[in-house]
């Protein structure tokens, strides 16, 4: 019974509802105060766990603070100058960007169709979903180890053994060739995240009213047309969220290249976070690493928000 009323009523009343929303949903001043109060916990968390430490880091970035002695002398922009003059920083930047963009595109392209399939009924659905989700569970340290055995460039490596037994292919230098190593790290990153992002899309798929598809079916739309005309546009909010997460997490990536290739061969899979850890923790040059962190945070912020803007705009066009 609800099938017919819901789409028509929401469709027809949408413009009026939008106009009315501001006034009626906000309510009187008392309600407004309560509304604002709902924000307080998040703001407190934000200020104490992010703003204060970040400001402290900002201060340290202008000092020669070592991370061991409480003394810190103001040295101006020296740390920033040093970072900008360091050639190994550039190599870290290249792979970090490549990884972030690569995983974002690939995971998005794979997770949406996967979510659509996982949403259908089939035998063993729960087990399959769990298996897809599993790579998000254990720590990256152990997954990095497992993959380094699988992708070992030696003839005794797991993948190389399979390739030579089944196809007679000679040992492939998965992790010891620059291009292949970059490719391998990105593929493992995709493997680790696709399932969880598919689950995220799955949650959003649930909010698409079944009636839309029924109406489309009556109009004679093929499954393909349904996907592009209904599913994809309605998944846009999910895509905004998911791609923002992928991109920012990709930029912050540390564990995976660190355990799988340790940044190698050479600097092929070296990341910015790795140099952050090496200078800050290993070398104890906390001032320098704070400067790096500040620049990095700004860069991630700019990239992340630009991307958010673009995807939201695309999303709005569809909606």
């Amino acid at each position: 019974m609800t099938t017919l009323t819901t789409p028509t009523s929401s469709g027809a009343s949408a413009p009026t509802a939008r106009k009315r929303r501001r006034r009626s949903v906000e309510g009187g001043w008392k309600q407004i105060t309560i509304n604002r109060a709902f924000l307080i916990p998040a703001i407190v968390v934000f200020v104490f766990l992010f703003v204060v430490p970040l400001l402290q880091g900002l201060y340290w970035s202008f000092t020669d603070f070592t991370g061991y002695s409480p003394e810190a002398n103001f040295i101006g922009w020296d740390n920033y100058v040093q970072i900008l003059n360091d050639p190994s920083m550039l190599s870290g930047l290249t792979f970090t960007l490549l990884f972030a963009v690569g995983t974002t595109l690939l995971v998005t392209c794979l997770a949406i169709p996967l979510a659509v399939q996982l949403n259908k009924a089939f035998v063993g659905r729960n087990v399959v979903r769990s298996l897809w989700f599993f790579p998000a569970v254990p720590s990256m340290a152990i997954l990095g180890l497992v993959w380094s055995y699988i992708l070992s460039p030696l003839p005794s490596g797991v993948l190389n053994t399979l390739l030579s037994n089944w196809f007679g292919i000679e040992a492939v230098s998965w992790l010891s060739d620059n291009t292949l190593a970059r490719f391998s790290v990105i593929m493992v990153g995709v493997w680790a995240q696709t399932g969880w992002h598919a689950v995220l899309y799955l949650a959003y798929l649930q909010s698409i009213p079944q009636e839309y598809y029924e109406v489309a079916k009556i109009d004679g739309a093929s499954p393909r047309q349904q996907f592009f005309a209904i599913t994809l546009p309605l998944l846009m909010p999910a895509m905004v969220v998911s791609s923002f997460l992928l991109l920012t997490n990709g930029l912050k990536v540390f564990d995976l290249p660190y355990t799988l290739t340790n940044g190698g061969p050479g600097f092929a899979t070296y990341t910015i976070t790795q140099s952050l850890v090496v200078t800050g923790v290993g070398q104890g040059e906390y001032g320098l690493s704070s400067a790096l962190a500040v620049m990095f945070t700004v860069a991630v912020g700019v990239i992340g928000f630009t991307q958010l803007r673009i995807t939201s705009r695309i999303g709005r066009r569809f909606a």
């Binding site: 060739d177 620059n178 940044g263 190698g264 050479g266 600097f267 090496v278 070398q283």
Partner: peptide
């Protein structure tokens, strides 16, 4: 630490 990371990476590049 910084020198060690640099040395290992550069030796790897030499080997390649």
């Amino acid at each position: 630490d910084v020198l060690n990371v640099e040395a290992v990476a550069q030796v790897q590049r030499m080997i390649q």
